[in-house]
């Protein structure tokens, strides 16, 4: 396939950035989107041009590093799929594809298509204290049946824990809100017995940090869940709202 790419190029955080058009040839429909970008970069290097910088790591949909807004949709046209798992057979010969980075004030651009997502890390670990994890020393491995957990809760917790922290929810939200990510992290621990001890402090800390990072407010539009490669449901946002209201009254 031959394609025309319209790619966001930006030298560094201060640069204004702009869309640059490139022609790529010899793209196989079996390639992943990132492999297509690798091919593009090789062709750019041959021509003596600067390759396009983009984030990636596992390339198997589990690390959450990759993330591009492809033709206006975070992670591209296929639902429940990360950019690295998106295949070029979703496109046709001759297509023009627009590729942009996540855009949010809390995710400043480092270079080209790479954004700084450490805001998420600061929500997971709020001022050195536990946010999205439990602060117990794990010790020896307990017996798997030592703490009984209802199957439904375990399943739900697993659904929430599937969040890979990619940030597509923020990228898709018209308000650049991080509610789905934070809700997934608050939710998976809130459903398990091990997460109860810090339940109230966790939601208070994480929401307060989320607000501090400058993410927008949620208006319940649901674009986040539609864009999420792990299909995290809006239900977790409702759950977090409930937890937040309770925690505010319990902890004052």
């Amino acid at each position: 396939m031959n394609l025309t790419l319209r790619v966001w190029r930006q030298k560094n955080a201060k640069d204004r950035g702009r869309i640059v058009e490139y022609k790529v040839h010899d793209v196989s429909p079996d390639m992943s989107f990132l492999e297509m970008l690798d091919v593009t970069n090789e062709q750019l290097i041959e021509k003596g041009e600067e390759p396009i910088a983009f984030d990636h790591d596992c390339r198997e949909g589990i690390c959450g590093m990759c993330g591009l807004v492809i033709n206006g949709i975070p992670h591209g046209p296929e639902s429940a799929t990360t950019t690295c798992q998106l295949h070029m057979r979703n496109f046709s010969n001759g297509d023009t594809i627009t590729i942009e980075p996540w855009r949010a004030r809390a995710f400043p651009i480092i270079r080209d298509l790479i954004v700084d997502r450490t805001a998420f890390d600061r929500i997971i670990r709020v001022d050195g204290k536990a946010g999205g994890f439990v602060s117990i020393s794990t010790g020896g491995v307990p017996d798997a049946n030592a703490i009984p957990i209802p199957k439904d809760d375990a399943d739900l917790a697993m659904d929430a824990a599937a969040c890979v922290g990619c940030g597509a929810c923020v990228a898709a939200c018209p308000n650049a809100s991080a509610m789905l990510f934070v809700a997934a992290k608050v939710g998976h621990l809130g459903l398990l017995p091990q997460g109860q001890t810090e339940r109230h402090n966790r939601v208070l800390r994480m929401v307060s940090q989320m607000d501090k990072e400058g993410f927008g407010g949620c208006t319940n539009m649901g674009e986040c869940a539609a864009a999420c490669p792990k299909e995290i449901s809006l239900d977790f946002i409702a759950r977090m709202n409930c937890d937040m209201i309770k925690a505010s009254f319990v902890k004052g």
């Binding site: 033709n71 855009r103 949010a104 004030r105 650049a176 400058g214 993410f215 927008g216 674009e223 539609a226």
Partner: peptide, 27 residues
């Protein structure tokens, strides 16, 4: 107050952005 948050949440707009499913009412 919430609108102020929303308007500053994204400082640089997308060149192209699609709506996936949000209703007209919600927007």
């Amino acid at each position: 107050q919430l609108t102020e948050r929303r308007w500053t949440g994204r400082d640089v707009k997308y060149v192209q952005q699609k709506t996936l499913q949000a209703s007209w009412a919600s927007r």
